[in-house]
Write a protein that binds this DNA or RNA. Structure first.
Lengths: 241, 241
DNA sequence: AATTTAAGTGTTTTTAATACACTTCACACG
DNA sequence: CGTGTGAAGTGTATTAAAAACACTTAAATT
C-alpha cells in the first residue's frame, strides 16, 4: 500500500465564482476581461487558488471580497470540475461557487479596476476553460433554488417593491407571471413586511416598499415549514393512450 | 503577483463515495470498518486520493470498482468538503460522490474483503472526519432527486414489481404511500413496460414484473418533458391572519 | 379638470392531489 | 377439491391548489 500521503497526489485547487446581479430588469453576471496571463484578454469568471490556511468557503469569500469589496455575500457551493485537461496550464481542480449580490451596493469602481463587467445572462461571451459550463449549471441551480428558498431578496436592495420582485422572478425564469397570482402567493407566505414608504421612480402612483423578514423565516424554517414560490408548472410526461 | 502556479498551493484531494443500496425493504449504505491506519477500526465511507491522470468522475468510479467490482454504476457528484482540519492527518479536500447500486448484483464477497457492510440508513454509526455530514447531505439530495428524476430504478434489479418500487419510495422518504395513487402516477408516465412474468416470492398471487424503459425516457427528456413522481406535499408557509 | 401610467385588488374555472374499499388471483391446507 | 388466506390489483368522489381573467385606484403631468 505504500505511504498513505504521497506528494504526487497533490493538486492545484482553484475557486471560481459565478456572481449574479439584477439590474435594469435583467439578470447579469460579473465577468472578467483578464488583464494578465494566462489567457490575457479573454473573458472568465473571477477565481483564484485555494490557500492551505483557508476552507473552501473562506477562499471563495476572499475572492469575492477582492472583486467586489463586499463581505456579507450570499454564496453557495455549486460543483467541482476536474477534467484532467480543463486548464491547459497545469492540472487544476476547480470548485465553483455562485454568489448573489445587490448591484447597487457593489463597489463598481473596484470591480472595474479588475476589468470586471456586468453582462446580461443572455449575452454571456465565450469564457476560458470550462467556465461556460459552470455558468450554465449555476443558472440552472439558481432557477431551481429560487422557487424553494427565499433567496431572490439577496439580489435586491433591502427595501424593494413587489413589481421589482416579480420582475426579478421573471428575469430569472424567463417567463411572464400574472401580477395578481404572484402578489397573492408571495404575500400569503407572511414573510414580507410592508413599509409606509413608496418607490416613485417607475410610476406616478408609486409602489410600496417591502422588506423580507429574515427572523420570521428563520423561525418557520426551524418549525419545518418550506418556502415555496411556484412559477409555471412543468409539463409532465404522460404518454399512455 | 509572482509565479502563477506555486507549489504551496497544492492540496490532497480525496474522493469519498456514499453508496446506497436497497435491500429487505430498507435503504442501506455500504460502509467500511477500516482495516488499516489512519483510524483503523473506525467506520468510514469508501474513499481514496485523486490521481493526476484521472478526472474526478474517473477517480470515483475507480474507487467504486475497487469495493464493488461493478463498473456501470449510477453516480453523481455531491459536494466538496474543505475545512482546514477536517482530516487530522494532512490538509485534505474531499469531493463526495453518491452512488446507487443494485445490491443483488453486487459482489458481496469483494465488499466483505474490504471490510464493507450494508448498514440501514437508520442505523448509521459515527463515521470518521465529516463523513456523517456527507451522508446526511447525500440522503437529502437523494430524497429530492428521486421525485424529479427516474433514478429509483438504479436501486432495483432490472425487472421489479410495483410493490417493490413503492416500498423503495417509502423507504427513501420514510412515509406510507397510497397504493392506488402510487400505481396510477408511476404508470401514467408511460415509462414502465409490463412483463408477462410474475414475481412469486412475497405473495401467492404474485406481482407482475415491470422494466423501466430508458429509451422512452431519453426521448421524452429530450423533448423537454420532466419526470415527476410526487410524494407527500410539504407544508407550506402560510402565516397570515 | 382631464389625462396618463403603473399599482393594486377578488372571483371563477380548471387541474391536480388526496382519500377511500372492494375484487381478484393463486397457492396452501384440510 | 373447495375453502381460506394474503397480497396484488383496480376506479371514483372529494378536496385543494393553480391558473385565468379585468377593472379600479393613486398620484403626477399638462
Amino acid at each position: 500500500m505504500g505511504a498513505f500521503y504521497q506528494d504526487e497526489d497533490r493538486h492545484y485547487v482553484a475557486l471560481d465564482c459565478i456572481i449574479f446581479g439584477f439590474d435594469a430588469g435583467e439578470l447579469k453576471l460579473l465577468l472578467l476581461k483578464r488583464k494578465f496571463e494566462p489567457a490575457k484578454g479573454e473573458w472568465s469568471l473571477m477565481g483564484g487558488f485555494l490557500k492551505n490556511y483557508e476552507s473552501l468557503d473562506e477562499g471563495a469569500r476572499r475572492i469575492l471580497l477582492q472583486l467586489t469589496g463586499l463581505t456579507n455575500i450570499y454564496m453557495e457551493q455549486l460543483q467541482s470540475y476536474g477534467d484532467v485537461n480543463r486548464d491547459p496550464g497545469e492540472r487544476t481542480i476547480s470548485i465553483a461557487f455562485y454568489a448573489l449580490i445587490k448591484v447597487d451596493e457593489n463597489d463598481r469602481k473596484l470591480a472595474e479596476a479588475h476589468g470586471a463587467h456586468w453582462i446580461s445572462i443572455n449575452k454571456v461571451p465565450t469564457l476560458i476553460f470550462d467556465h461556460n459550463k459552470m455558468v450554465e449549471k449555476a443558472l440552472k441551480t439558481l432557477r431551481n433554488k429560487i422557487v424553494t428558498k427565499p433567496i431572490g431578496f439577496e439580489l435586491l436592495s433591502e427595501k424593494f417593491t413587489l413589481p421589482q420582485l416579480q420582475s426579478l422572478y421573471e428575469a430569472i425564469n424567463q417567463e411572464q407571471l400574472d401580477k395578481r397570482n404572484f402578489r397573492k402567493r408571495i404575500l400569503e407566505t407572511g414573510l414580507l413586511d410592508k413599509m409606509d414608504e413608496k418607490e416613485k421612480g417607475s410610476s406616478k402612483k408609486g409602489a410600496f416598499y417591502y422588506m423580507f423578514n429574515k427572523e420570521k423565516y428563520r423561525m418557520f424554517a426551524e418549525m419545518g415549514f418550506h418556502f415555496q414560490m411556484k412559477v409555471k408548472k412543468d409539463a409532465l410526461i404522460k404518454m399512455n393512450t
